[in-house]
Amino acid sequence: MQAKEKILLAAERLFAERGLDVSLREIAVAAGQGNHSAVQYHFDGKAGLIDALYAHRMTPLNERRRELIGDLRARGLEEDLPALVAAYLAPLAEHVLAHPGTSWYLRFTSRYVLSGGYRSWPYSSDHHPGVAELAALLRRRLPGLTRERLRVLNLHIVVVLADLEQRLGDPAFDAGRARSAVADLRLTAQALLTA
């Protein structure tokens, strides 16, 4: 594993566990970097590190979301609310389910969002074009859908999946319970949009 990837993974875990006040030096040490300026060197500071962390995770997640959008369009489901909601949350849920006990991404994202990191999250970042495309489809399906309701939808999805990510670290919490939690999340997300 390259130094940059070690730093990204260490930062993701530390940010998830302790919040964004973790020092760059602590991240370098956790990544096994003898040079305590390694994070500054590779990422030009904490803002660059966070942006790189989102790019590292969101690129494949966004590609998956775009696949799902293409599938919706091919099947003529652009106005089917359950299908839209499923496409909206599936990439993140799939990520969590595929990395039981080893993923920190949703917990990091939850902390970052709740800290005010993205003031207009998730619409201001280049890392989220699939989310923006699905938001447009949701607005077409639900013409009264507000930006605030979409923000609440994202918060709901991220926080619930962060909790699921945490619970998957417990060996007693099995894959069946995790899949059931994702199915319930799909229903609550749909209800949130139509409430």
Rank of each mutant, 00 (worst) to 15 (best):
M1P: 08
M1V: 15
Q2R: 12
A3I: 08
K6H: 13
L8V: 09
L9P: 05
A11G: 10
A16Y: 03
A16R: 08
E17D: 11
R18P: 04
L24E: 11
E26N: 01
V29C: 05
V29N: 06
A31H: 10
S37H: 07
A38K: 04
A38N: 05
V39I: 11
Q40N: 12
Y41T: 12
F43V: 01
D44E: 07
D44F: 07
A47W: 06
G48C: 07
I50Y: 04
L53F: 05
Y54K: 15
A55N: 08
H56V: 07
R57W: 04
T59Y: 04
N62D: 15
E63Y: 12
R66A: 14
R66E: 15
R66I: 08
I69D: 10
I69W: 12
I69S: 15
L72G: 03
A74S: 14
A74C: 09
R75H: 15
E78W: 10
E79V: 05
D80I: 09
D80A: 13
L81C: 05
A83V: 06
V85L: 02
L89A: 12
L89E: 13
A90Q: 04
A90N: 04
G101K: 02
T102A: 01
W104V: 01
W104G: 02
W104T: 09
Y105H: 09
L106R: 03
F108M: 05
F108P: 01
T109H: 06
Y118N: 02
Y118I: 08
W121V: 05
S125R: 07
D126E: 15
D126Y: 09
G130D: 02
A135D: 14
A135W: 01
A136L: 15
A136I: 04
L137K: 03
L138W: 02
R139M: 10
R139E: 15
R139F: 07
R140G: 15
P143T: 06
G144E: 12
L145P: 09
T146L: 10
R149S: 11
R151N: 08
N154G: 05
N154I: 00
L155R: 02
L155C: 00
H156R: 02
H156G: 06
H156W: 14
V159A: 06
V160M: 13
V160L: 02
V160A: 09
E165K: 03
E165L: 01
Q166F: 11
Q166M: 11
Q166P: 04
D170G: 04
F173Q: 00
A178Q: 00
R179P: 02
S180I: 10
A183W: 13
A183M: 12
L185F: 10
Q190T: 15
Q190A: 13
A191R: 13
A191H: 09
L192Y: 14
T194I: 07
T194R: 04
T194H: 02
T194A: 07
A195W: 10
